[in-house]
Measured scan of single mutants.
Amino acid sequence: WEITFERNGKRITVRTTDHRLLELFEKLWRNGADERELERLAEEINR
C-alpha cells in the first residue's frame, strides 16, 4: 500500500505491506503529531 498524507502543503508518502503501520501513521497524522517526527517515521516505514 502507498498513501500520501498532506497538511498545509506538506506531503509525506508512506509505503508498506503492513496496513497496521499505515493506520498508526494516519492516527498520528490526524492527531497533529510533529511533522519532523512523522517524516522520520515515514522514512523508517518505507525501508
Rank of each mutant, 00 (worst) to 15 (best):
N31V: 05
R47I: 10
R30A: 15
T4Q: 07
F25Y: 02
R47D: 06
I45M: 07
I3E: 09
D34G: 10
L38K: 01
T17S: 14
F5H: 02
I45Y: 03
R30W: 14
E39R: 06
R20E: 13
K27T: 14
D18N: 11
T17M: 09
E35F: 15
F5D: 00
I45T: 02
W1M: 10
R30D: 14
G32N: 07
E23C: 11
E43S: 09
N31H: 09
V14A: 01
E23F: 04
R47N: 14
W1P: 08
R30P: 05
E23M: 09
I12F: 08
R47S: 13
A33I: 09
T4G: 03
G9R: 01
E23S: 08
L38N: 00
D34L: 15
T13N: 04
D34F: 15
T17W: 04
D34N: 10
N46S: 12
T13S: 07
E39M: 12
K27N: 15
H19N: 10
R47M: 13
R40L: 13
R30N: 15
R47E: 08
A42R: 02
L24F: 12
E44V: 14
F25I: 06
R7L: 14
A33D: 04
E2M: 02
L22Y: 06
E2V: 05
R30Q: 15
N8L: 05
V14D: 00
L21Q: 09
G32F: 05
D18W: 02
I45A: 04
K10Q: 11
K10R: 12
I12S: 00
R30I: 13
N8S: 07
F25T: 00
E37M: 13
D34H: 08
T13H: 07
W29C: 09
L28C: 10
K27S: 13
F5P: 00
W29V: 12
E6P: 02
R11V: 14
N46T: 10
D18L: 03
T13P: 01
A33H: 10
E44Y: 12
R20Y: 13
R36K: 14
N46I: 10
D18Y: 02
G9E: 05
E23V: 10
F25K: 00
D34I: 15
E26V: 08
D18M: 04
G9I: 00
V14R: 00
W29P: 03
E35G: 07
F5L: 12
L22I: 13
I12D: 00
T13E: 03
G9K: 02
L28K: 06
I45R: 01
D18F: 02
D34S: 12
E26C: 05
T13K: 07
E44S: 12
E35N: 07
E39D: 08
H19D: 07
L28D: 03
T4K: 03
F25G: 00
N8T: 04
D18E: 07
R40M: 12
R7D: 03
E2K: 01
F25V: 02
I45Q: 02
G9H: 04
R20L: 12
A42Y: 06
T4F: 06
W1R: 06
E37R: 06
N8Q: 06
F5K: 02
L24K: 12
R7Y: 11
W1E: 07
E35W: 15
E2W: 04
R15V: 10
L28F: 11
D18H: 06
E6S: 03
T13W: 01
E35R: 03
L38R: 01
E44I: 13
N46C: 07
A33E: 09
E39H: 09
D18P: 01
E26I: 13
R15Y: 07
I3A: 10
L22W: 06
E26R: 04
R30K: 13
I3R: 11
R15T: 11
T16P: 02
L41D: 00
H19R: 12
R47T: 10
F25M: 06
I12P: 00
L28A: 15
L24P: 00
K10S: 09
I12Q: 01
W29H: 09
T16L: 08
D34Y: 09
K27G: 10
L21Y: 08
L38S: 01
K27W: 13
E26Q: 05
R20P: 05
A42S: 05
R47K: 14
E44C: 15
T17L: 08
E37V: 14
L38W: 11
R47Q: 13
L28E: 13
L41W: 08
R11K: 15
E26H: 05
R40N: 12
V14K: 00
R36L: 15
N8F: 03
I12L: 06
I45S: 02
L28G: 02
E44L: 14
A42I: 10
G32I: 04
R7N: 07
V14I: 15
E37S: 10
L41Q: 03
N8R: 03
E43D: 13
L41H: 03
T4P: 01
R7H: 09
T17K: 12
W29R: 04
A42H: 03
E23K: 09
L24D: 07
I3C: 08
V14P: 00
E37L: 15
E23Q: 08
L24M: 12
E23W: 05
H19L: 14
T13V: 13
I3H: 12
N8C: 04
R47Y: 05
T17E: 09
E43Y: 02
G9T: 02
T16V: 10
E6N: 03
L41R: 02
A42Q: 03
T13M: 06
F25E: 00
L21K: 08
R15W: 03
L41N: 01
E2D: 08
R15P: 01
R47V: 09
N31C: 09
T4E: 09
D34W: 15
R30E: 15
N46P: 02
E6G: 01
I3G: 07
E6M: 04
L41K: 04
I45H: 03
L38C: 03
D34Q: 05
I12Y: 08
D18C: 05
E26T: 06
E39W: 04
F25R: 00
F5I: 13
L24Y: 14
R7K: 14
K10T: 14
L22V: 11
N31E: 15
D34K: 03
E35A: 11
E26G: 02
A42K: 02
K27I: 14
W29E: 06
E39L: 11
W1N: 07
I12M: 04
G32K: 06
L21W: 10
E43I: 09
E35C: 09
I3Q: 12
V14E: 00
W1A: 07
L41C: 06
N46D: 05
R36D: 15
I3V: 14
W29F: 14
E35Q: 10
D34A: 10
K10N: 09
I12W: 06
E43W: 02
L24E: 13
K27P: 02
L22G: 02
E6V: 10
E23R: 07
E35M: 15
R15S: 09
L41Y: 06
V14H: 00
F5M: 06
R15G: 03
R7S: 13
E44M: 14
A33W: 10
G9V: 00
N46A: 10
D34T: 11
N46K: 06
E35P: 10
E6D: 05
R36S: 15
T16S: 11
L28H: 12
I45W: 04
V14W: 00
E44F: 13
G9D: 05
W1H: 11
R15F: 05
R20W: 10
W29K: 04
L41T: 04
N31D: 15
R20D: 12
R36P: 12
G9W: 00
R15M: 05
E43C: 06
H19P: 13
R7P: 02
E35D: 15
E44R: 11
E39Y: 05
I3L: 11
L38A: 01
R11Q: 14
W29D: 04
R36A: 15
R30Y: 15
E2Y: 05
K10C: 07
D34V: 15
I45P: 01
L28W: 11
F5C: 07
L24A: 12
N46H: 07
A33M: 10
E6F: 04
E35T: 12
V14N: 00
V14L: 13
T16C: 03
E44T: 11
G9A: 02
R15A: 07
E43A: 11
E23D: 14
L28M: 14
L41M: 10
L21G: 01
N46Y: 05
I3N: 06
R15E: 02
I45F: 04
T16F: 12
K27C: 15
A42T: 03
T4I: 13
N31P: 04
T4H: 13
R15H: 07
T16W: 04
E39F: 04
I3T: 06
N46Q: 07
F25W: 04
A33Q: 05
L21H: 05
L24R: 06
E2N: 01
R11M: 11
E26Y: 11
R11F: 14
W29Y: 10
L22K: 06
E37Q: 11
R36H: 15
L28P: 00
E43N: 12
L21P: 00
R47L: 11
G9Q: 03
E43G: 08
G9Y: 00
I3S: 07
E39A: 10
E44N: 07
W1C: 11
E2C: 05
A33C: 12
R40G: 08
E43P: 01
E37T: 14
L24W: 14
E37K: 08
E6W: 03
K27M: 15
E43T: 09
N31R: 04
E37H: 07
L38T: 01
R7W: 09
I3F: 10
N46M: 09
D18V: 04
R40T: 11
I3P: 02
A42N: 03
G32M: 08
L22N: 01
W1L: 10
W1Y: 11
L41G: 00
R7I: 15
T16N: 05
I12E: 00
A42F: 08
N46W: 05
N46F: 07
N8G: 10
I45V: 04
E44K: 12
N31W: 03
N46L: 09
L21N: 04
G32V: 03
E43V: 08
E37W: 08
E35K: 03
L41F: 12
E39C: 07
L24I: 12
